[in-house]
Design a protein around this nucleic acid. Structure first.
Lengths: 158, 158
DNA sequence: TACTAAATAAGAATTTTTCTTACTTAGAGA
DNA sequence: TCTCTAAGTAAGAAAAATTCTTATTTAGTA
């Protein structure tokens, strides 16, 4: 797929969320797709963007990422280190955090989602409107160089 | 219970975790117990301590909280705003976050814990040693002044 | 094409967290 | 009890992360 077509689709996604499709937003989204699975912080997104877009400002990246997360276009991922991290994958709501390598791995599992949904329906929290449910597994890789075997980072089409 | 007895117990808990029972650590722990359920950040703990312990330094509070969390004496709670928050309750592994009031509410539920444990046993992650499992519910209170009805912040004895 | 609300750049300012160094102390052992 | 030493702490500088302010620019609309 050509870059122009690609960007055309990104533009449409932004508009579909009710967001103005500015150049900055498109390239931030593009960078996030490129960093998919890495759960970058604003600074890392900025570093990736800057060479091709030297005029963009770090503050814009921060704001844009927040805006995207607010619109549910992307996902804000809570990190054990406290920083704000993001991922283009808005469907995986669970994460595995390794305190050795400090990496965050997406964990997408339909069965788990169903399990939680069923549980929450039975519990039926009063006076609370759930927006998202997320499971965090914290721990350590046994062999830090190797992958966690269940990991399935899904491909995001486009 | 008298304060001296109280502190004696705190001291023993620290020692049980293999930590030196310094005065600073005892008062930090004490403050956290007092703030239980509020999930304070280092700064808030510091503010509570300072009047009675003007010589303690904020850096020490940061370090002490990290040390406690590392020793599993207390709990580090991931906050939607990015800051590092803590709670003396080391047993509740799940939290409800309200984006209106920015409060974090402990959510302790044996059934949920069992459900997750059973699920993870079936999945059996390879190359990963789980230290903790936590569920985050994000959303909004319908009536911000009122409580969420399922909330059960357990009493920590002593 | 012109208009307007929204978005952005730039960088100052703030907030949060870590780090460094010299000093102090808890707990262990004599 | 006294002494020793590794560990912990104060103080504040420094770094890192994030937000804010204001003037300027732009996307989408009429």
């Amino acid at each position: 797929m050509q870059k122009s077509t690609h960007r055309h689709t990104l533009r449409e996604r932004l508009l579909a969320c009710g967001l103005k499709a500015t150049h900055q937003r498109i390239v931030v989204y593009e960078a996030l797709l490129e960093l998919h699975g890495k759960h970058p912080m604003a600074e890392e997104v900025y570093q990736l963007l800057k060479p091709a877009n030297p005029s963009i400002s770090l503050g814009t990246v921060y704001k844009t990422l927040d805006t995207f997360a607010e619109a549910n276009l992307i996902h804000k991922v809570l990190s054990e280190e406290g920083g704000k991290r993001f991922d283009a994958n808005a469907s995986a709501h669970s994460h595995i955090y390794c305190s050795n390598t400090r990496e965050i791995v997406d964990f997408e599992d339909e069965e788990l989602d169903a399990l939680l949904q069923e549980f929450l329906q039975r519990r039926n929290l009063g006076n609370f409107e759930i927006r998202s449910v997320s499971v965090q597994l914290t721990g350590k890789k046994v062999e830090p160089e190797k992958q966690i075997s269940i990991t399935r980072v899904p491909k995001i089409d486009l």
